[in-house]
Design a protein around this nucleic acid. Structure first.
Lengths: 66, 66
DNA sequence: ACTTTATGTAATATATATATGTCATTATGT
DNA sequence: ACATAATGACATATATATATTACATAAAGT
């Protein structure tokens, strides 16, 4: 479940908590997603992608799938 | 939660049950996802995309997000 | 008409995503 | 050195995705 959320978030100078607030999640959830040990819901993935100006593929479609 | 799963599945002449088996899910879960009333997990979305030879964006990234 | 096959739908059970609360640790600033 | 902000990590509680079982229906084939 590796992804590019942390990279994209830091690029926008957002904290985990700021991102969490904007996607109506908690800091802990964002942390676990970035850590890659989580299986988030599609809705949350889409909310995160929109907030980080990325698409699902850019954040969650891993290299090995391409 | 509209998506293009049903369209892609039918294009490959797969039944809901065949797709379900290949992604280790149940027919009912596939049916609900296609109906658009579900919020599936990222792992399941990725499994479905791989099986249907599509990417996450092609199946789940809606027009209004583009 | 009858039999399969595919799908819709609903009830209940189970697994797990997510929230909540708390403490530790690691920057960062002053 | 101290204070604060940001993150990591770990419990427990709650919401919900998913499985299981079952029945109905519609389509397709014989």
């Amino acid at each position: 479940m590796k992804n590019n959320v942390k990279l994209a978030r830091v690029s926008l100078s957002l904290t985990q908590e700021q991102l969490a607030t904007r996607v109506a999640a908690t800091r802990q959830t964002i942390g676990l997603i970035e850590k890659g040990e989580y299986n988030p819901s599609l809705q949350l993935c889409i909310a995160i992608a929109k907030e980080l100006n990325k698409t699902l593929d850019e954040l969650f479609w891993e290299v090995e799938n391409k």
